[in-house]
Each structure stands twice: as structure tokens, then as C-alpha cells.
């Protein structure tokens, strides 16, 4: 086949798109949109959880400092000269 015959490709007829196709596309697009998880909402929820966790760590650390201080008070040795079972 001669390569000049590539010009016969211009004889290919253009085809009209079936009318019902737009409706199918619209339905698929709407369905996609419903299934999409909104990134903004997920981001807000995630930062809220992270904030809660950070607050928890902070307050846990704070309360453990207080506990440690209390323990230190309890461990102070009392030196007196009284004997046991006296």
C-alpha cells in the first residue's frame, strides 16, 4: 500500500454522539461527587483529634509533675530520736 494513501484517512466520517450520553455522564458525575470525601472536613476533624491528643499529653505531663512533687514530700525523712516500741 502506498503511503500517500494516508490521505484516505480523511474519508473517515464524523459520527454524532448519541443524545442519551449526557444524562449518563451527569449521573456518573453526581455519584462521584457524593462519594468524594470533602478534604476540608476531614482536615478539620483530623486537626481536632490531634489537638485533643496534644492537650491530653500536656495535662498528663502536668499532673505527673504534681504527683512527683507530692511523692517527694512524702519521702522526706523525719529524723527524731524516738525509738520504736519504746
Amino acid at each position: 500500500m502506498e503511503l500517500d494513501n494516508l490521505d484516505i484517512l480523511k474519508n473517515i466520517k464524523r459520527i454524532e454522539v448519541p443524545d442519551a450520553l449526557y444524562h449518563t455522564i451527569e449521573c456518573r458525575f453526581e455519584k462521584n461527587r457524593e462519594n468524594n470525601i470533602p478534604i476540608l472536613k476531614v482536615g478539620i476533624a483530623a486537626s481536632f483529634v490531634i489537638g485533643l491528643m496534644l492537650a491530653q499529653f500536656y495535662f498528663l505531663g502536668f499532673s505527673s509533675e504534681i504527683n512527683q512533687f507530692n511523692n517527694e514530700i512524702e519521702l522526706v525523712e523525719v529524723n527524731n530520736n524516738s525509738l520504736y516500741y519504746e
Binding site: 494513501n5 484517512l9 474519508n11 459520527i15
Partner: peptide, 15 residues
């Protein structure tokens, strides 16, 4: 359909 309408066998082969 754009080629089948033409009924051109050489066009079909080329495609």
C-alpha cells in the same frame, strides 16, 4: 461506524 459507512476495505485495513 465512520469507516463501515465508507465500505472501504483498504481504509479498514489501514486503521
Amino acid at each position: 461506524p465512520g469507516i463501515l459507512m465508507e465500505q472501504d476495505e483498504s481504509l479498514k485495513i489501514l486503521m
